[in-house]
Design a protein around this nucleic acid. Structure first.
Length: 421
DNA sequence: TCTGGGGTCCTAGGACCC
DNA sequence: TCTGGGGTCCTAGGACCC
């Protein structure tokens, strides 16, 4: 029998901010999305006063003022670093670990069945808290989907003290009955609405539904969920993370952008970060898509994209910028206020397997060396130290993203660490 | 005039996740 | 006035092949 544990960091981004700023304890705190647009992480206190996930900041300004809510721009350098610390800690408990997202991991505890799993979960929880300062909840069950259910209750219910083991538990049906279909992993808004239409409101009802009916309405994905809810594991642990299939880099602008010149700068900057990711993965892109759009909440919404297939797969920044600019020119319309742009690299191949072209006249060895040097310098001195002039000079351009309430880079730039007394 | 049956590959779009 | 970013998987349908 399989046993999975889901370890889920509580209010992860907010918890990261709190580790380095203890004054935030007990206060309502939120972290905002890029451009300080909407709420992406909330402390329990913030949830209690009615701040919803994804709420646009301008809509909750009254609540913010009234309750003196502490606001932070997102600081991904900090969160990424804290995530690594948490995952390293979990790795001490078992090598069979799947890092599912920045703040979640599945552990395979199948061979731990003879332990008291609740005690073991408490040990994991206490260790992560002690070593990283991050509070986590642990859900344990026979399948990943059930572990997710257990994790929700571990987080929500005080009685669990942060750990809930539902393996062979008399509470399993009870927990399923109290889980709305929309809260099941893999069931989003659309399917939740559809299921409700047929009188299926909670996970217990879904579990007891006929396979063929679900197969017809939700395809194989639905049937898999059904079996997982019954305790038959269908979703294996992804121990080694599969190679990425695409890499996207995009941002919205703090102000509307109208000129092609500015869009070219933004696109060059996104290509730079995307290409850096490519090289870190050891991949080269066989195709590139560039896209732009105006404000999607306004009339006359314009959105367009252009995909270019590259003669030779590459991860060379200047080459990719060249193609991206060519694509951009095709979709750019004058007289519009653009809000966002981005690039997507697809048809990825391992760098070593790049098929050279007969008509290729670039010196690829030389450009690879240049990219290596560029990455090495930026690694050492901070992202963006060396960058392409095409991405624009200056550090407050219209298309830049706003981060007005960013916390210091506590963990990644030691100069800014608070003094130790 | 009749108008098969199978297979593969690709793409667009839908649905979902954090 | 102000509304994030980056992914995955599945399916249906068309193109093409023998």
């Amino acid at each position: 029998m399989s046993i999975f544990a889901l370890v889920d960091c509580n209010n992860f981004y907010v918890s990261c901010e709190r580790v380095f700023n203890p004054k935030l304890a007990g206060k309502p705190v939120v972290v905002l999305s890029n451009n300080d647009g909407c709420v992406v992480s909330r402390s329990n206190e913030a949830k209690e006063i009615g701040i919803g996930m994804g709420a646009p900041v301008f809509e909750i300004s009254r609540i913010i003022e009234k309750h003196d809510v502490q606001i932070y721009s997102s600081n991904y350098a900090l969160y990424g670093d804290m995530s690594q610390r948490v995952m390293n800690t979990l790795g001490r408990f078992t090598p069979k670990i799947e890092i599912y997202s920045i703040d979640e991991a599945f552990l395979d505890l199948s061979s731990f069945g003879y332990h008291n799993l609740t005690d073991y979960g408490q040990k994991i929880r206490a260790t992560v808290k002690q070593w990283t300062g991050i509070p986590v909840a642990v859900g344990i069950a026979e399948s990943k989907t059930l572990a997710k259910v257990a994790g929700r209750f571990a987080k929500k219910s005080d009685k669990t003290n942060g750990v809930l083991d539902l393996t062979a538990s008399p509470y399993q049906e009870h927990a399923l009955a109290r889980t709305k279909v929309g809260d099941i992993w893999g069931i989003g808004r659309r399917y939740a609405r559809l299921l409700k239409k047929y009188g299926i409101h909670n996970a217990l009802q879904l579990r007891n539904t006929d396979d063929t009916f679900i197969r017809e309405k939700m395809g194989v994905v639905g049937v898999r969920i059904l079996h997982e809810l019954r305790g038959t594991s269908c979703l294996e642990l992804q121990h080694t993370l599969p190679a990425k299939k695409g890499i996207t880099s995009s941002r919205s602008f703090k102000k509307n952008v109208e000129t092609l010149q500015e869009l070219r700068q933004a696109v060059a900057a996104y290509v730079s970060t995307g290409a850096e990711k490519l090289r870190r993965e050891g991949s080269a892109a066989g195709a590139l898509t560039v896209f732009i759009n105006t404000n999607r909440f306004k009339d006359n919404y314009y959105s367009n994209s252009e995909t270019l297939f590259l003669p030779v797969a590459t991860s060379d920044t200047s080459e990719l910028i060249h193609y991206a600019h060519r694509g951009l020119k095709k979709i750019y319309r004058e007289g519009l206020g653009y809000k966002k742009a981005g690039v997507m690299f697809t048809n990825l191949v391992p760098e070593k397997h790049v098929q050279p072209s007969l008509f290729d006249d670039r010196n690829r060895k030389r450009s690879a060396k240049l990219m290596q040097t560029l990455d090495a310098v930026n690694e050492k001195t901070g992202t963006g130290t060396l960058r392409y002039a095409g991405a624009g000079l200056g550090d407050n351009l219209r298309w830049h993203t706003a981060f007005n309430k960013r916390s210091p880079a506590y963990t990644t730039q030691w100069e800014q660490l608070p003094a130790v007394s």
